[in-house]
Write a protein that binds this DNA or RNA. Structure first.
Length: 574
RNA sequence: GCUUCCGUGGUGAAAUGGAUAUCACAACGGUCUUCGGAACCGUUAUUCCAGGUUCGAAUCCUGGCGGGAGCACCA
């Protein structure tokens, strides 16, 4: 039976009860210093005040009535009045016999919807989407390992005035004799990725022709039209969605090409209907200048402002579409929690949408309560290599290719016994691990500075470091004879560190804090590598070897599961 | 102007209000290169400023300074 934080809390509460003190909110955590034991509590600093005695005195009182039981070897009072707990060696080993698969968390048994990686079908898949995918995939997998029933969806943009402008370019090119259909698929994709920019530029130069774009918007927004233009637009949409799903699959996401896609056009239509029904005197939305439908928040909400939900042409804006999206998400999937991952710059936008939604009657307040926005930062580039090679807004695959080349050249002369094709996959996996760790090692929501020559490192705190450590473990387990089994040996710092694996995972999952998980994995990898440098793992001593291998197996499991949550496959060789 | 996010060694980051602020990169100096050196060990160096709350502040509050983003028909 595992012994951990909860049990320590129990022991302390019992002691407090004995002293006649109740309802003290204290913390139990892993101390930074190993010499401070396996767990530490600040209970005496808080309870001392209540009892009107010094923290040290209080700590002594608590310790004097503490029932240590079998698991706790020793209890020390230290510093200003911290109580440090030291676990017995056999308890440490018992805990390390655990294997992480799924964990009990607040998500266990819950239906969780995660929306991420939403592209614009007429723009290329760029670095921002990659960032979004990395964070979104973390959220999905964290919840999955935390026992949740996860459904991943994406919300591609397929209607807007901007897209109408892009479509205009395509139609004009067609009239000029350029038919994208006769081009190879990859050329087509590049072409589609480019027309948005061209369309916007064209109408910036020819503002008097804007009605042409609006006419096309009319056709694609209303979708009832059986016109030639609508058919062409629809074909392109189909092609791009296929291409896009392929990208996501290659990145390890699990978004179903049909049930996992909600188009902006669907959400827009739904949103418009809901908004129109709730517009008027005394209702949530009002008619504004020029016939647009607007929402005005309470004056107490200084952080948000009046916003248009349906524009004066009668089409839903970004806000209107997102309102419809909430309705579709909850009526279709009925999730307990609905996470959506976007750029942090949209935090303001979602505050407004959710505030408006919370004013609607029926299920809406509950839906708003269940909707959680997860913001991520932007990728900024510092290195010359990256910016000169990529320029402008870098495309996701250019970045991945560049880092992959870097990984391959760093591998240099290392001979890896793998077929060429597997090697290529391996370099890519290593590159993606470097990118993912570079993103997920920081708190989500902040911008990331990418410099492939330093921050996107392959040494030290990096993805490849964790992969390398994992491969080392795999190699040891393959070479070591006999079954791993813990024996009676003094526990190492590594083993003490691994005692906290389950609780660290649970906390990182519940808080959706990838940086906590990454930090923990680094600490375990470092403890392992130090141990490895000092200790011969596989020796002639069969029992000692079996014990060492049991430790290695635990390390491997922690790394493998942790990396999985971060979206990284851990190969056994690299 | 208002709103909002952010400010930690030379660089990039970590730290439910807790003990001597942690990790990596860079720099400098080392390692029996048998089990995988993409490793290991060591040295130097950090909380924007001024107040306040607290037994205790990088963290909370107030006011500055500096940077990013947003402020109704783009997404």
């Amino acid at each position: 039976m595992a012994f951990g934080k909860q049990e320590i809390i129990g022991v302390i509460n019992e002691a407090l009860h004995e002293l006649g003190v109740s309802e003290v909110s204290f913390s139990v955590e892993q101390p930074q210093e190993l010499t401070h034991g396996d767990y530490a509590t600040n209970v005496a600093l808080i309870a001392g005040k209540r009892l009107n005695i010094s923290p040290k005195e209080c700590a002594e009182k608590i310790v004097s009535v503490l029932k240590k039981g079998e698991a706790i070897k020793d209890v020390h009072i230290a510093g200003p009045g911290f109580i440090n707990f030291f676990l017995n060696d056999d308890i440490v080993q018992d805990i390390n016999k655990q294997k992480i698969e799924k964990l009990e968390t607040k998500y266990t048994g819950k239906n969780i919807l995660v929306e991420h990686s939403s592209p614009n079908l007429f723009k290329p898949f760029h670095i921002g989407h990659l960032m979004n995918n990395i964070v979104g995939e973390f959220v999905s997998r964290a919840v999955e390992v935390g026992g949740g029933d996860v459904k991943e969806i994406s919300f591609p943009s397929d209607v807007s005035l901007g897209i109408a402008k892009a479509a205009y370019i395509i139609f004009e090119d067609k009239k000029q004799g350029f038919d994208f259909d006769s081009e190879p698929l990859n050329k087509q994709i590049i072409y589609f990725g480019d027309v948005y920019k061209k369309g916007v530029a064209y109408f910036d130069e020819h503002p008097d022709e804007i009605q042409k774009a609006k006419d096309i918007a009319h056709i694609i927004f209303d979708e009832t039209s059986k016109s030639e233009e609508y058919r062409v637009y629809d074909t392109i949409k189909e092609k791009n969605i296929d291409y896009f799903i392929n990208i996501l699959n290659s990145l390890g996401s699990n978004i179903h090409p049909v049930s996992g896609i909600i188009f902006e056009s669907q959400a827009g239509n739904r949103g418009r209907k809901i908004i129109e029904e709730n517009t008027g005197e005394g209702k949530v939305f009002q008619k504004g200048e020029g016939g647009a439908i607007i929402y005005t928040p309470d004056e107490t909400r200084k952080d948000i402002n009046t916003t248009v939900f349906v524009n004066s042409d009668g089409y839903p804006t970004y806000e209107g579409k997102d309102l419809g999206l909430i309705d579709i998400k909850f009526t279709k999937f009925n999730p307990d929690i609905s996470f959506f991952i976007t750029d942090a710059e949209q935090a303001h936008h979602f505050k407004i949408v959710l505030d408006a939604a919370s004013k609607l009657s029926g299920k809406w307040p509950e839906w708003v309560e269940k909707s959680k926005h997860i913001p991520h930062g932007r990728m900024l580039f510092k290195g010359q290599k990256m910016s000169s090679r990529l320029g402008g807004v870098p495309l996701a695959f250019d970045v991945i290719d560049l880092v992959t080349e870097e990984a391959e050249s760093l591998a240099g002369e290392k001979i890896i016994d793998l077929p060429e094709k597997d090697k290529a996959d391996l370099w890519k996996e290593i590159a993606l691990s470097a990118l993912r760790i570079a993103v997920l090692r920081s708190k989500p929501g902040l911008n990331i500075n990418f410099d492939p020559e330093s921050s996107l490192s392959f040494e030290g705190d990096s993805g490849p470091y964790l992969l390398y450590t994992h491969a080392r473990c795999a190699s040891l387990l393959e070479k070591g004879k006999g079954d791993p089994e813990f024996g009676s040996y003094g526990v190492t710092p590594l083993e003490r560190g691994m005692v906290h694996a389950e609780e660290m995972f649970v906390k990182a999952i519940e808080d959706l804090a990838p940086q906590q998980l990454v930090t923990y994995l680094f600490s375990i990898a470092q403890l392992f590598n130090s141990w490895y440098a000092q200790e011969q793992i596989i020796t002639d001593d069969k029992e000692k070897t079996a014990h060492n291998l049991a430790v290695v197996a635990r390390v491997k499991n922690i790394l493998e599961r942790g990396l999985y949550i971060l979206g990284i496959e851990a190969p056994n060789k690299m």
